[in-house]
Amino acid sequence: MRHIISLLLENEAGALSRVSGLFSARGYNIESLTVAPTEDPSLSRMTIVTSGSDDVIEQINKQLNKLVDVVKVVDLSEGTHIERELMLVKVRAAGKDREEMKRISDIFRGRILDVTDKTYTIELTGTGAKLDAFIEALDKGAILETVRTGASGVGRGDRILKVQ
């Protein structure tokens, strides 16, 4: 099953490689991993999308907690949460396809960030599934380039991941 795990870790050199090294050493999946400093610059927040059986997910949580640089771990998928991912897509937009491309982008609430006479670069934000759906909706031949950030997530309402 897919899980989205959020963690706070010391914003120190090598902290990221401790986490990624743990996943590769123990054979856990990483679907995506995003990390950036928080409002407190001594802390980074990481979001990992992974998948595995309940036993594996339990071990992932425990092993992450065991890393000395990791301050807190939360499995967001244990409760209600919001997740968002950002994608930039550069598409062919010439001739008769140009109008159609704009329409599809609008349907998905995309924003066109860059325009040339032959291309559009579209920004799209949403769940991973929405971004997948957008890619599906496009003619494969029209896609020149895609780049995705991987998911970031936050718990709904009172579920807060913060160091006291």
Binding site: E58, Q63, K66
Partner: peptide
């Protein structure tokens, strides 16, 4: 003493 040792190989 190590939570990750518990239920790792045997529930």
């Amino acid at each position: 003493i190590d939570p990750s040792s518990i239920s790792k190989r045997v529930r």
